[in-house]
Amino acid sequence: MRHIISLLLENEPGALSRVAGLFSARAYNIESLSVAPTEDETASRMTLVTSGSDEIIEQITKQLNKLIDVVKLLDITGDAHVEREIMLVKVRVAGSAREEVKRIADIFRGRILDVTQSTYIIEVTGDGTKLDAFINSLDRSAIMEVVRSGLLAIGRGEKGLRL
């Protein structure tokens, strides 16, 4: 099953490679990983999406917790939470495609960030399935570049992951 694990790490140079190294050394899946400093610059917040049997997920959380740079960890999959991912797509738009692409972007509440004679850059935000749906609704051959942030997630309400 797919799991979303939120981590607070020491904002140390090696911390990210320790997490990434753990996943490759133990052959765990990693679907996406995003990391940046928090309001307290001594800590980074990481959102990690992985998948595996219950036993494997249990080992993943234990092994992550064991890393000295990991301050706190929470598997938020089972709790009420908000998921967001941001995607930037560059598409080739010529002639009548300009209107069509704009219309699709509107449906997905996308924003056009950059326009040239032959290209658009569109920003779309949402959960992973929405972003996939947007990609699928475009003409594949027109897609020039896709950049995705990886999933960000946060628990709803009072419960949370704080220092």
Partner: peptide
């Protein structure tokens, strides 16, 4: 050295 030893230490520092 920190990279080479990372998978076989409890922790390391530079």
């Amino acid at each position: 050295c920190v990279g080479i030893t990372r998978p076989c230490v409890k922790h390391n520092f530079l």
